[in-house]
Design a protein around this nucleic acid. Structure first.
Lengths: 336, 336
DNA sequence: CTGAAAGCGCTTACAG
DNA sequence: CTGAAAGCGCTTACAG
């Protein structure tokens, strides 16, 4: 591909002048600039990002960490949408997206090494195990970061409003006459504990005491495990009339469990999900759930990260809280 | 971060020797090499990829084009899995993954320009509009490519065995006693036409003549449109007993349509999907469908691409065809 | 076995 | 307004 020297030769100018013309410096004659721009176009010139980066220490690359231990970050609809929206906003602001990895060929490197190696200017952390020491190393490195649904010490976070969103779902269910409400929640994490807190607070506000037998844990997105957890719940002497699930994907297992038990859905057992994925909205009855605003989350993450790259003197640290949207569905029956 | 000069200073060696020690050249004293490696570790050294790339023209970066016009490539489970598997294999072989984009800040660039700018060594084209002239430009540029479910003139392709897979689904349905079989297929594309060919061939082999009123088009993954298409199909005088859908996602709309018409599923109308996404397998009855081997596709794509980068003299051009796996499901009823 | 030197494609103080 | 020169961090023929 043509480089800056080809343009210089073609225009009989120095590379310095060509560079300045290309980069819009004011101290270059407008006629000269036009000639340069014309030659650049004619020669199909596009700057070599690595050369520029080497000189300016600006790579305009952003790293993303979207893969959890099970390598399935991307295949979760929510994270796919967050990444999509993050990517679009980042590109609009002039940045490319690269995946950060810990294994490269035979080498094992830390997240930080990987970032320095590729030369990303910032990183978005989403679907990963935040408890790794390497995450702390990253957070202490000075490299701008943004995290999603987790709060790091030195970096801004974008958070779903899990606590309040959960509470409003409890109120919704309560208004439909339910009081034996079970909560099958996900494994320990910041998200889970926020949801549990929102649930218990709202139950208390509603004057319903929490029955520990109606609290259980089951992995996110695992429909088979949800089937088992719901089955167990429905074998209780005093069974719930409504079950909150870890997320929407779990609803498939839950419905199955209800059917297998010979109960009617939603007349005998109501269900509530979390996320707002497409599929459970197309079913009938559709699932009552909390639509997470993945677009807003990805967008906010890109904005916060790029702000902290470009204006470190105005480093933005306060978490951005993004509210979800309650999607009322036929999966919650009206009691008496 | 520490650079090669820091190591040189620390070891009182020249940068040349340090570089050679680091890169495993044989003409360096083993004691010296050990000292260098030790210092590198101590200083937290990791090579600057852009500097190396600038000098060697090897970036070890691969571009991916996974976003269609609607910006939803990643959110399709199939493509997310392909990308995931592509990424894992590429990283295992020492390559990073970067998204290629046409818009970067204010600049509009062609795919090729974007690739040259970032300096990727190859590109994987998946969920995009292959008819754009820019794709041809890419294919003619000499940059190594690999395409998924589409055949380019100068590059290897990884293909699902749409034709044969489709045919085996037709045979499956035929064996269950169906002969009024409708096919709601996706919009024109290579994938669609292969599936149509597989369908019509298998019908012919089964001795069933094709009724044009039972052929219709509806977009992939669009459950609402599928609802409409199925409804229309079920209003026919002589309606089908079994309907093939564009893909699994469409099944949600299809089931809805059957229910709304007051028909029973699957007793009155059977359904067949395509893809093998998790959700329709968890439902009951589960969907008869073709599980696409996304992992194998992503893996093969990475292997083919990297082979063509590293061994251009043995350029691999023959398409790799990946068979799917028929998942028999309760969504196809046994007729009499 | 080690090192001095050139150069990858760019940018940027500085001189003129 | 233009250009010569240095340098970003690395690699690699070449000399010794």
């Amino acid at each position: 591909m043509a480089n800056i020297r080809d343009i210089a030769a073609s225009c009989k100018l120095s590379v310095a002048t060509v560079s300045k013309a290309l980069n819009g410096y004011s101290d270059v004659n407008e006629v000269t600039r036009a000639r340069v721009l014309d030659a650049a176009k004619r020669l199909g010139y596009f700057p070599n990002a690595q050369a520029r980066s080497l000189k300016t220490s600006r790579s305009y690359q952003l790293g993303v960490l979207f893969i959890d231990e099970n390598n399935n970050g991307l295949t979760q609809y929510f994270f796919a949408k967050v990444l999509n929206s993050f990517k679009m906003e980042a590109e609009r602001l002039g940045y490319h997206i690269t995946f950060i990895t810990k294994k490269l060929g035979n080498a094992e490197l830390s997240y930080l090494q990987s970032c320095r190696h590729i030369g990303v200017e910032g990183v978005c952390l989403a679907c990963i195990d935040f408890d790794q020491p390497e995450v702390e190393e990253l957070d202490n490195s000075g490299l701008p970061l943004v995290s999603i649904d987790y709060i790091l010490k030195n970096s801004p976070a974008i958070l779903s409003d899990n606590r309040n969103d959960m509470a409003s779902m409890v109120r919704f269910v309560k208004e439909r006459g339910h009081s034996r409400i079970a909560f099958i929640h996900g494994p320990p994490s910041r998200v889970t504990s926020e949801r549990i807190r929102g649930f218990t607070n709202a139950m208390k506000d509603a004057g319903i005491s929490i029955d520990p037998t109606l609290m259980a844990e089951s992995p996110y997105t695992d429909s088979v495990k949800a089937f088992e957890a719901v089955t167990k719940m429905l074998k209780l002497e005093n069974k719930p009339t409504c079950i909150f699930l870890p997320d929407d994907s779990c609803a498939f297992g839950a419905i199955e469990a209800i059917n297998k038990m010979g109960l009617r859905f939603p007349e005998d057992v109501s269900l509530v999900g979390y996320d707002g994925i497409r599929f459970t909205q197309m079913m009938s009855p559709n699932l009552t759930t909390m639509r997470q605003d993945a677009e807003a989350i990805g967008l906010a993450a890109a904005k916060a990260l790029i702000n902290n790259i470009e204006a470190p003197e105005h480093k933005h640290m306060t978490p951005v809280v993004v509210s979800g949207q309650l999607l009322p569905g036929g999966s919650v029956s009206q009691l008496n």
